[in-house]
Design a protein around this nucleic acid. Sequence first.
RNA 1: GUGCCUGUAGCUCAGUCGGAUAGAGCGUUUCCCUCCGAAGGAAAAGGUCGUGCGUUCGAAUCGCAUCAGGCACACCA
Length: 580
Amino acid sequence: MIKDYFLENIEKSLKHAISEGKVGQLSEYKDGTLVVERPKNADFGDYAVNVSSLARFARISPVQIANAIVENVEQDDNEYSVIGGFINFKAGKKLLTNLIEEIFKKNKNFGKPENVECEKILLEYISANPTGPFHIGHGRWAAMGSALANLLKFYGHDVYQEFYINDAGSQIQKLGNSLAIRIRQQLGENIDFPTDEAERKNYYPGDYLIPVAKKFIEDNIELLTRVHNDVSQIDVQLLSDFAKEEMESLQMALLENFRVHFDNFYSELTLHKSGKVDECVNKLKASGKIYEKDGAVWFKSSDYGDDQDRVIKKADGSNTYLTADIAYHIDKLERGFDRLINIWGADHHGYVARVKASIEALGYDPSKLEILLGQLVNLVINGEEVRMGKRKNMVTLDDLIEEVGVDATRFWMQMRSIDTTLDFDIELAKTNSDENPVFYVQYAHARACSILRNVISEKLNTETGEKQPAPLSQDEFEKLITNFHADMLLPTVDTARKLILKLEEYKSVIKTSAQTRQVYTICRYVQELASEFHSFYNANRVINDDKDLMKARLALVWSVKTVLRNALEDILGVTAPERM
RNA sequence: GUGCCUGUAGCUCAGUCGGAUAGAGCGUUUCCCUCCGAAGGAAAAGGUCGUGCGUUCGAAUCGCAUCAGGCACACCA
C-alpha cells in the first residue's frame, strides 16, 4: 500500500538520521510510533506523518526532526514536504500507475491482503426460533452476517457459517398449541386466542399460522376424519413438528432469496438428544463450580466476572436455555475452530458474561469467543418511527424485502455501524434518486459499464443518419484489458490522482474492515468511490479523439467498475447492474 | 438501582492510535447537458462536537461527574 511504502521510507530515513545523531537526543525509534494519516487539506499532499510525538524525547523542535528525516529520505519520483511537524507526501506517477496495473492483474482479488494468518472461524448469526417469520431485526443480522462472512473469507480466513435453531423448549409447544387453534378455526369452530394478556403469551397469535393450518388440513384428511375433526385428540407434538418444519422452510427460502448462505443449521434439539447437554452439566459439576440452592443447580459464573450466578438445572429437573447454549459453544470449540464469532442483538448482551464464564470454567480460552452486539432496528414509515412490538404489528422481513428489494434492504441494513440503532426509512430506501445511496453506487457502476459498451459500439449520427465506426475495435479493447501496463495510464495520471488514490484505499478499507468486523466501512467506501468517479466523469471526457488518452481513461473506468463490482457483489451481496 | 450502546450541521450519519481550518449525504440557494447515462457534476450557506471539570504542548477522541434517549437485568427461550 502507498501509505505503508511512505511510512517505511520515513522510518528508514529516521533510523538513519538517528544513527548519524541528527535527531537531537533521540537514540532509538520503535516501529509503529509514527502514524500515517490523511492531510486535512488535500493541497498538502496525499498522506502525512506528524512527528511531534518524537519531539519530547529528541528535545528539538518537530520541524527540525521532520527536516532531518526528509533530507535523508529516498525520494524516487514522489514529493516530500515539511510543514510544521508534518511531513507531507505526494505520490509520484510510478506509484499511481502501478496501482492501476495491479487492479488489472489481480482483478477479482484486488485488495486481498497477502500473508494473512488464516483462522478457522465459525460465524454464528440470526439463530432465530422456528416459531414465526423473521422480523426486520433479523434482517440486520442476516445482511451483516453474510457480508462479514464474505469479507473475512476474502481477507483470507476460513469461515464456516452456522445458524443455531432454537427448536427445543416450551416455545415449540406454544407453536403447536397455536396451530391447533388455527386448525379448529379453519374447521369452522368459533374459537380464538385468549384475550387476557398473560394467557395470550402462551400462544403465537400472528396470522402466519393460518396458511399453515390450511396446509395441515389438506395433508391430514385421513387423520382428521379418524378423530372426527376433534383436534384435541391429535398429539400436540405432531402439530408442533408440522408447524416447525413449515416455519423452517419459510425461513430458509427467505435466506436463499436474501443471498444468505449457511453452511450448517444446527438444531438445539439434536444437541439435547445426543446427550451433549447432560454431558456438559456433568463436566461443569466436575469443575466444582456448581452448587445447589432452592432445589435448582447453579453455576458459579460470578467467579468469572458475571454479576450473578446462573441456574443450569431447574428445580423441575429440566435444563435452562443457558445450559444448552453452553453445550453448543463447547461443541463449537470441540469441532476445532480457532475463533467463534457470534452476532447477537443488544438485547442479549447480559448473556455474554455467562457464556464466557462457562467456557472458562470448562477449561477453554474465552477470548476465542467474540460476540458482536448489534443495536436494534427501527422502522421509519412516513417520517415516523414505528417501534417494533414483540408480536403485534410486526413488519416481517419478507414484507420489507418485497417492498424495497433485496439490494436496498441489504445495503441499508449494513450501512451503519453495528453500535448504532438503525433507522430504516422505507420511503427513502425505495426511491430511485440521489437520496438513496444504493442507487447512487449502482448508477456509477452502470455508467462505467455504459462507457465500456459505447467505446466498442458503432455510433449513429442522429443528424446525418450515418453510422460512425466504434472508437475502439473489439480487438483493441480486449488488448487493452489483457495487456494493460502502468505506462499506459500516464496521459491521465495527473487529472485522476484523487480517483486513483481512492481506488488504492480499497486495500486498507478491506483490511481495517475485516479486522474490526465492521462491514459498514465498505458501504461508505463504495459511496466515496462512486462520488469520485462521477466527479472524474464530469470533468474528463473518456471517449475522445486522442486514442492514448482515451485508453488511459478507459483503464480507469474499467478499474472503477471492477472495484465497485468486487465490493458490491463479492462482499456486500448487492448486485452491480450493467444497466439500470 | 446496576450494566451495555448512543448524543457531532435543520435531518441521517462519518471522524482510524489524541494532532493542520470539524467531514459526507439529504434538505436549502446558485450554476453546468449541441457531446460517453443530469438517476450526474461544480459551488455557497449551515457547528458551543449534550453539559461541566480534569489529564495533555494539543481533546469530538482519554478520565471523572452529570443530563437525555435506547436496550437488558428469569428456575422464558
